[in-house]
């Protein structure tokens, strides 16, 4: 067990700001896994995810003195990571929402009647194959916990579009799992 393993978040920030490399490394190590996967799910490309995660932590260290502790450090870093990933998708013009014309399932119960493999690795792989627009909505809403209202604001779409794209992602995911 290292000396920084049980250190509190606040102390980790203070020590990082004071230039202690061990604390900076510990802060990075504590959050890099989750941030890498968050970004990877959004951009769906491993090399881009590595580059963006690297950029995210450069920003984190540059702006750490502006972190006021009003939210958890992880949430603060996640916001930076999500913004970086969304900017990347926007720059590449990958955030276009394709209109969903498929038949929507009447209820979630109808979905559950269908057979799908309870395999989280397969789900992870299938998420990466979803179209950019609906995958982004799906990840932000279900996995990152943003409300549809927030997702809509972040992506510049309507709340209704966000919900529709989410349904589309669920449907495609289920089909991919079948």
């Amino acid at each position: 067990m290292t000396a920084t393993e049980n250190i509190t978040e606040q102390d980790l920030v203070q020590q990082s700001l004071a230039g202690q490399e061990e604390a900076q490394r510990a802060l990075y190590g504590r959050y890099v896994g989750a941030m890498f996967h968050t970004v990877l799910r959004l951009v769906s490309n491993r090399q881009d995810a590595e580059d963006l995660t690297q950029e995210v932590f450069v920003k984190v260290f540059q702006r750490l003195d502006s972190f006021r502790g009003e939210s958890a450090l992880g949430a603060w870093i996640k916001r930076i990571a999500v913004n970086a990933a969304l900017n990347h998708l926007r720059t590449a013009d990958r955030l276009r929402m394709v209109a969903y014309e498929g038949q929507q399932p009447a209820t979630d119960e109808a979905v559950d009647e269908e057979d799908w493999a309870h395999d989280i690795r397969r789900i992870h792989e299938t998420i990466k194959t979803l179209p950019d627009g609906c995958r982004t909505v799906f990840c932000l809403h279900l996995l990152e916990g943003y409300r549809h209202q927030d997702v809509a604001q972040m992506l510049g779409i309507t709340e209704s579009t966000s919900k529709t794209q989410y349904m589309r992602a669920k449907r495609l995911l289920r089909e991919g799992m079948g």
Binding site: G33, H37, E50, D108, D112, I120, I123, H124, L142, R174
Partner: peptide, 23 residues
């Protein structure tokens, strides 16, 4: 919330360990 969503949320932490991170 469907069973699929519930299952994904239950396995949420596992999803963050799916790929090797070049830390």
């Amino acid at each position: 919330m469907s069973d699929l969503e519930k299952y994904i949320l239950e396995q949420r932490d596992e999803l963050d360990r799916m790929e090797a991170v070049p830390e």
